[in-house]
Design a protein around this nucleic acid. Structure first.
Lengths: 402, 402
DNA sequence: CTATTTCGTCATGGCGCTTTACAAATTAGT
DNA sequence: ACTAATTTGTAAAGCGCCATGACGAAATAG
């Protein structure tokens, strides 16, 4: 029997729980965890007033969470005010950990994040992953995962689940990679290839990048568009704090939004797709740069040196992005647009023309376009945190295993 | 003191309710109402098995709802199977009613819908509403509302709320029309102008059209794009059964998605927006038809007669729609795209080129594009039903007033 | 006419939160 | 220093809500 998959981001009060007294209890456990996690060390009384329950009720909830090893008592608070000081509670640093993994075109990365959000262990392995099939790649990934899990365990943690970010389309079952052109994968079910004792989620790296921005970004609103590019151009659409996945799970294919309907043909079947103007290949060609290792770093270096060909190529890519984003902004009215992934490193040369185009084409106040401060780490962190969020969202499940 | 506004579509179990025993009770009352409403007359036992509570629990819930006048006992069921027949329960036809209203460019319409979804009373008034300001228009609308409410009351109903559909952008407060170019309205707060004894919601007609499709359409999935055109072109984005409104409430502005980035200038500031190709004005001009009354009917008639200019204009509009929708489909991966509003009547001439364009440009299986069977009635019905849904979503609120 | 099945209700019980009360630990004021 | 006031955490009693189990009522099957 394989472990059950977990949802990646069922908002705060896991709406799946039934409306019975036990469901209520579980949701309230989750609310305590979320509150303590978000607002640092807090006394029982502080938690109670924040979530609208009584101190007595919170006491019993906290007892249960402490017994399960999900919360820790830090001892008496420094009293600044009158009255008996509370006993500070914090999310445990020795409980469950989320294991995040990333399959890149030429690297693999795995990390373990504890409930406090700290990265406690990590491992990277470089080398091409275009092996023609998923098996050998996932085998190497599994080795890396075991290594990170072992290291986490030596620090008193235990792995609560594994989330894998891949550069490709993932079916809604959260296990099957339908198509990953840059890896040459097609309809690859990663479930049987990864450790069966860990609840597994597989998702698009752009989705995990967007979730990382939502969870970890400074002042990230609940309605935003996260644009990222590795080789293709993907977008994560987050509304009301929820990631929009689409019926088949293929939402966010910004790279194939038409920019010039009569433009060059695209492998997708369309013409003039964004990727034909702002995709990595197109930009490298326009800049007259040979494809090779660390292409993004190369472009950034050349642009910084003042290479006019590279700068023009990036300006034009920014314009194309601006056109595509005009459509997206008109359709979705996000509060901000965030550039992440490889785009973050090239932002200084993309942003001016992108902002120009967007401002020119949209009415009303200018739409803020910002750059993710997570940079290329977004997807990996998002994956690991998705497991952590699953624990916070339903602590009862994990308490049984602890 | 004005009545509190209600949410338009907080899914089934109004997530706003607190996680306390009373909140649980209220959510379970809602689940009973939704179940009975959706699946026709049902016995207590049938409801119990559907929502996963025991017969005993459902009995007390039903008692409460019957006492409040929200459910009715229809008497013993026709027994087809062995065992004691159940007592059929139905949603009451004499309880609260939702009042929907629509402000069109040259008409006003109001209707009352009971909890069963039946239209029990309606009134229409023709005549231009471009009076330069909202006051006189809303005054006429109020008169119509009072007339419909009185008629509904004479049938034993009482008005639970009023929802108004407007052809323009509405702020997220659900009361203020920020901009309605075709009415010449700007920053008009309709709150003080409408009956203060009715909870009020104002929303974009495209949004209400999309909700009508969600609630009333045959086989409408939970993820879809609803495209409607009156004078502008709007889209309702529904995902996971929830309408996506955007930060400012301006989501769905499909009309200003760029189709040809160097196309003709648009009043919005952009160039080559969809509206420049598929908007009413553009189509009329391309077809060589003079603007006037019932422009859509005229176009449909001419096209049916075989007028080649009109047909070409509609074909080209369909192509432009196809390009804009390609972007939307790539970004959102909806299960289907539905054409509603004025577009529904022109569908026979728009659809072929629209489908062609969409199929050519998107990979994978063809995305179904269908036509709403609600036609131009969508927004009005959606508005009235939004009030009905609010009652189903939280019967306890209304029970107090009954 | 009896056995069986299903429905609705009642009494009982368990579970989860609130209320109320109280001891513990701190600050403010005299 | 000592008392009053304030706040925290816990314990006991109470109430609301659903589950369980039993029962009469009303149908079908044999």
């Amino acid at each position: 029997m394989t472990a059950a998959p977990h949802e990646a981001e069922p908002a705060l009060p896991g709406r799946a729980l039934p409306d019975t007294q036990q469901g209520m209890r579980r949701r309230n456990l989750a609310r305590v965890m979320h509150t303590v996690s978000a607002e640092g060390p807090l006394s029982r009384a502080a938690v109670a007033s924040r979530i609208g329950l009584t101190r007595a009720a919170v006491s019993t909830l906290v007892d249960e969470l402490v017994r399960s090893g999900l919360l820790e008592e830090l001892g008496p608070e420094r009293p600044g005010r009158v009255g008996r000081p509370g006993s500070a509670l914090a999310v445990s640093a020795r409980g469950p950990a989320g294991i995040g993994a990333e399959v890149g075109v030429d690297h693999l990365a795995v990390c373990a994040v504890d409930l406090r959000g700290e990265v406690r262990s990590r491992a990277v392995r470089y080398g091409s992953n275009r092996d023609g099939s998923a098996e050998p790649v996932v085998e190497r990934l599994t080795a890396l995962v075991r290594q990170v899990v072992a290291e986490a365990e030596s620090e008193g943690l235990w792995a609560a689940g594994l989330a894998v970010a891949v550069p490709g389309l993932v079916a809604r079952d959260g296990r099957t990679v339908v198509r990953a052109p840059n890896l040459d994968w097609q309809d690859a079910d990663l479930g049987p290839l990864l450790p069966a004792d860990l609840p597994l989620t597989v998702d698009n790296e752009a989705n995990f990048g967007a979730l990382a921005e939502l969870w970890l970004g400074e002042d990230t609103p609940r309605d935003f568009l996260h644009v990222s590019a590795e080789i293709g151009i993907g977008a994560g659409v987050v509304f009301d704090g929820r990631l929009l996945r689409g019926t088949r799970g293929f939402a966010g294919e910004l790279g194939h939004v038409p920019v010039r309907p009569d433009g060059p043909e695209c492998p997708c079947g369309g013409r003039g797709c964004l990727e034909q103007y702002a995709g990595e290949k197109a930009v490298l060609r326009a800049a007259g740069v040979e494809p090779g290792e660390d292409r993004v770093g190369l472009l950034a270096d050349r642009a910084a040196e003042g290479d006019e060909d590279v700068r023009r190529a990036l300006r034009e890519a920014g314009t194309a992005l601006g056109i595509a984003l005009t459509g997206a902004v008109n359709l979705l009215d996000p509060e901000i647009v965030v550039l992440g992934g490889a785009l973050a490193g090239l932002a200084p040369w993309l942003l001016p023309s992108l902002r120009d185009e967007l401002a020119r084409r949209t009415a009303g106040p200018a739409r803020p376009v910002s750059v993710s401060d997570l940079g290329p780490q977004g997807p990996l962190l998002g994956a690991a945190h998705s497991v952590v969020r699953a624990v916070l969202d339903d602590p009862a499940v994990v308490a049984e295993r602890a």
